[in-house]
């Protein structure tokens, strides 16, 4: 495994945030003008302690990523905005739709309600990490294609991550079990019957 630096360190947004923090602590804030003043003044809690980026290492898809993040950053935003892993989708961002489902230590969780800093030392798997090393699709991805288990596709990465866990948990024995244990993934297009069919197909090859 090798380490990659967090891309956010080079992104304009992150640079600006670092810049503001540096200028705040060296007391040259007035030089930045009224807007910057307001932004700094709005921090009502010990800003240097509470908002400084914190450096740590995340394991995503068996690769180590060194990141420097505001501790408020969710795992979802870390993946999408800082590591360029945009396969994981932001639906409701409130833990209600399942679009952001990823695996942590093999268990499906909602990345929108997970702070990135709280999964240090754990193994995160996203939709980008489930295929074969030669680019082969995971059996669940293949089954979703073969059964037209999506229309717009926005919920699909979350559906697939959830479905893989549904099978590995042993909750895919019947259509009723699949529906119950996939209920945390909402599909606005209503592809539910096709999703059940896809899980039923993939569970056979996943066992093999």
């Amino acid at each position: 495994m090798h380490e990659t630096d967090c891309q956010s360190d080079r992104s304009p947004a992150h640079s600006r945030r670092n810049f503001l923090m540096v200028t705040a602590s060296t007391a040259i804030v007035p030089a930045l003008g009224p807007a910057a003043n307001a932004q700094v003044a709005a921090r009502d809690v010990n800003p240097s302690a509470a908002s400084d980026p914190v450096g740590f290492v995340l394991e995503i898809n068996k690769r180590q990523h060194r990141v420097a993040l505001d501790v408020r950053t969710t795992l979802l935003d870390t993946l999408r905005e800082h590591l360029g892993l945009t396969g994981t989708k932001k639906g409701c961002d409130q833990g209600q739709c399942g679009a952001c489902t990823v695996l942590v230590d093999g268990r499906r969780v909602l990345s929108c309600l997970t702070l990135a800093a709280s999964v240090q030392g754990r193994s995160v798997t996203t939709i980008e990490g489930i295929g074969g090393s030669g680019g082969e699709l995971h059996p669940m991805q293949q089954a979703f294609i073969e059964h037209d288990a999506f229309q717009c596709g926005y919920c699909t990465p979350g559906q697939i991550m959830s479905a893989i866990a549904c099978v590995s948990e042993g909750h895919a024995d019947s259509d009723a079990a699949i529906r119950e244990y996939m209920s945390g993934n909402i599909c606005r297009c209503g592809a539910y019957p096709n999703i059940v069919a896809a899980v039923n197909q993939a569970k056979l090859s996943m066992r093999a």
Partner: peptide, 28 residues
Amino acid sequence: GAAHFLAGGTTLIDLMKLDVMRPERLID
């Protein structure tokens, strides 16, 4: 302000995003 314990986070992080809960310290 309040310190809160962070366990699963499914209520706390949700309500912090909504600005309903406003802990100044989280202890994981």
